[in-house]
Nucleic acid binder design. Sequence first.
DNA 1: CAATACAGTACTTATTTAGTCCTGTTTATA
DNA 2: TATAAACAGGACTAAATAAGTACTGTATTG
Lengths: 152, 152
Amino acid sequence: MFKLSRMTDYGVVLLSSMAQRPDCLSTAPDLADRTMLPAPTVAKILKALAKGQVIVATRGAQGGYSLARPAADITVAEIIAALDGPVALTACVDGSDDNCSVERLCPLAGGWNRINLAVKAALDDVSLADLISECGMSDPAFGAAPGITLQQ
Amino acid sequence: MFKLSRMTDYGVVLLSSMAQRPDCLSTAPDLADRTMLPAPTVAKILKALAKGQVIVATRGAQGGYSLARPAADITVAEIIAALDGPVALTACVDGSDDNCSVERLCPLAGGWNRINLAVKAALDDVSLADLISECGMSDPAFGAAPGITLQQ
DNA sequence: CAATACAGTACTTATTTAGTCCTGTTTATA
DNA sequence: TATAAACAGGACTAAATAAGTACTGTATTG
Ligand code: SF4
Ligand code: SF4
């Protein structure tokens, strides 16, 4: 159905929550509480985001995660790449991990490149900050206290 | 991994094959032969494309399918919509079939709309004819005889 | 009326994704 | 320096989705 994986969706929710506290670290259990998402899943997503250098981790007691850059410099394409792998609509476009088994025979091989690039460009054009500002989340009411995000 | 479903990919391959014979009908078994794809799957895809009005069916003996419009007037977005449902990156964008369970609580609800529209626009901008011409398939060597498409 | 070909739907299997768990490493602080 | 907090990494299980198959029904040609 051509949709984002739930991981990516959750990832953005988590990042948005982190963006509300730009100056302090957020721990995985903390974020799970704030967003009402299951803790193990949150931990998994954060690890992937850290690996993709979207966020940076501070280890040890009093550690946690923080955004690697200001929200305006984090693109949606990066987030998707960190959580879902590279954008590759078909197996035969440049940058895809896997190979289509009939690529050598298929007359269309390579034809998807242009579309893939267009989609990637669209995703590259939107930052985390854009996403947040477009839905009223930058409203000062949000983020005032832990738990306000996804709870009522 | 943010990719097209195999159905959609196959669908485009089938449509390309049909586009090579604009003036005659192609039957499902015939297309299966030409593309080397499994016959039942081909039949399923063609039914979906017909339902989505990308191709038109002629029933009865000597029947078959043909493109509903010239290849230049069929967009990739239409093909995806016919085979995979509407483009809806998340459950909360306009036009999505399903509803996110936390939509009423999620601060990001609706924030994806802009991205979704951008992706849709990118897909709307490319026609079947573009796709074909970009990979050398319009080369007269292709389509000369049945079976040349995906066979060697 | 017999053969061909699409329409629709239900079902099974395969693949992918999501979710869980466990073990190891790093670091602040008492 | 011992302890607890917190991340890293990977293995495993369960759930959801997609793919593939099969069958019954309807329309059309000759
Ligand atoms: S080579 Fe052909 S069948 Fe394979 S992914 Fe590309 S377009 Fe699809
Ligand atoms: S409402 Fe929030 S969690 Fe649900 S699909 Fe939209 S962005 Fe994702």
